[in-house]
Nucleic acid binder design. Structure first.
Length: 275
DNA sequence: GCGACAG
DNA sequence: ATCTTGTCGC
C-alpha cells in the first residue's frame, strides 16, 4: 500500500510546452479544494515532546485523534547536478515513523510558476515508495499562493488526492494585508490576498498567510515569516494552524525540518555511492 | 519596455 | 536550490 497517483492525468509532465503546463495548472486549480477535508484537527497534532494528554484543554481533539495520533509528512528536495533528490518523512507525535527518498533527473530548469514540473517527478517517485498513509503533507513551496492557484503543494495534493499544505520561505505572488518588512512577534498571521498577479480568482480572496513561527526576543535581528498556503483539501486558516501546531522552536515546522536534513543526507549518498 | 518571480 | 567564512547571540 504505497502512495501512487490517483489522478495520472495530472502528473506533472516536463515535456509539455509552457502553454500546456499553464493549461494543466488551470485544470488543477478548478478541481483543487481549498476547504477543510481532512481527518485530523490541528489541535490533535502533537509536536516532539508533548504527547497527547487527557485533560480537556485540547478542545477540538476528538477521542479518535488521541487513539490514533495523526501522521504528518514533510517533503523536501535537494539537487545534485541534473538530478533531484526528494525526501519524505512521516511523523507521529513528533517522532519519525518512516522516511523514503528517490532520485530523478530534472528535465527543465527552475521557472517561477512552473516548479512542480521540475520537482514533481522526483516527489511522486518518492511517494510511490512510501508505505504510511499521512493525514496531511507539508510541501516546500507554495500551494494556492500561485499565479494560477496551482503551486507545487496543490499539484502534489491533487495528483495523490491527499491533504497538502504549502510552506514557503518567500512570497511568490499576492498582496500581504500588512507590510512584511516589519518585525512581528511570534504567532502573527498576515493574510495574503489575491491581486492582479493571481489570474484565476477574484482580487481580495485570501489565498494564504504570512506566519511568524519564530522571532527573536529583542535584538536588532529579526526572522522573516513563513508563507503558508493551502495545497489541497485544507483551508487557509487550517493550513496556518497545522504549521503552527507542528512548529517546535524553529522557523520551519518539524516535518519540513526533518525532511530537509534527510534530503541532505540522501544527497550526500548520491555523491558518495559507497555508502 | 520594465518589474517580479516558490525552489 | 547551490556555492561558502565568518559572525552574532543565547
Amino acid at each position: 500500500m504505497t502512495m501512487d497517483p490517483v489522478r495520472p492525468d495530472f502528473i506533472p509532465d516536463p515535456s509539455l510546452s509552457q502553454a500546456e503546463m499553464e493549461a494543466l495548472q488551470r485544470d488543477i486549480a478548478e478541481v483543487a479544494r481549498f476547504e477543510d477535508d481532512l481527518d485530523v484537527s490541528p489541535a490533535a497534532i502533537a509536536s516532539a515532546g508533548d504527547a497527547p494528554d487527557d485533560d480537556q484543554t485540547t478542545l477540538s481533539a476528538s477521542t479518535d485523534d488521541t487513539t490514533n495520533p495523526p501522521l504528518v509528512a514533510g517533503v523536501d528536495q535537494a539537487f545534485v547536478d541534473d538530478r533531484a533528490v526528494s525526501a519524505i518523512v512521516v511523523l507521529r507525535n513528533g517522532e519519525v515513523i518512516e522516511r523514503v527518498s528517490a532520485v530523478e533527473r530534472t528535465e527543465i530548469p527552475y521557472i517561477p510558476g512552473l516548479l512542480s514540473f521540475r520537482e514533481g517527478g522526483a516527489i511522486l517517485a518518492a511517494f510511490a515508495e512510501l508505505e504510511a498513509d499521512p493525514d496531511v503533507v507539508l510541501v516546500d513551496g507554495s500551494g494556492r499562493i500561485h499565479f494560477r492557484e496551482a503551486g507545487l503543494a496543490t499539484h502534489i495534493g491533487i495528483t495523490l488526492d491527499v491533504p497538502t499544505v504549502g510552506v514557503a520561505k518567500s512570497l511568490l505572488c499576492g498582496a500581504p494585508e500588512q507590510s512584511l518588512d516589519e518585525t512581528y512577534p511570534e504567532g502573527t498571521r498576515i493574510p495574503i490576498a489575491a491581486d492582479d498577479s493571481v489570474e484565476t480568482c477574484p482580487d481580495g480572496t485570501v489565498i494564504g498567510h504570512a506566519l511568524q513561527t519564530r522571532q527573536y526576543d529583542s535584538p536588532n535581528r529579526y526572522i522573516n515569516p513563513l508563507i503558508v498556503s493551502p495545497g489541497h483539501r485544507v483551508s487557509a486558516s487550517t493550513a496556518a494552524d497545522i504549521v503552527e501546531a507542528t512548529a517546535d522552536g524553529y522557523k520551519l515546522p518539524e516535518p519540513t525540518r526533518v525532511a530537509d536534513s534527510y534530503a541532505d543526507e540522501a544527497k550526500a549518498a548520491v555523491n558518495n555511492p559507497s555508502e
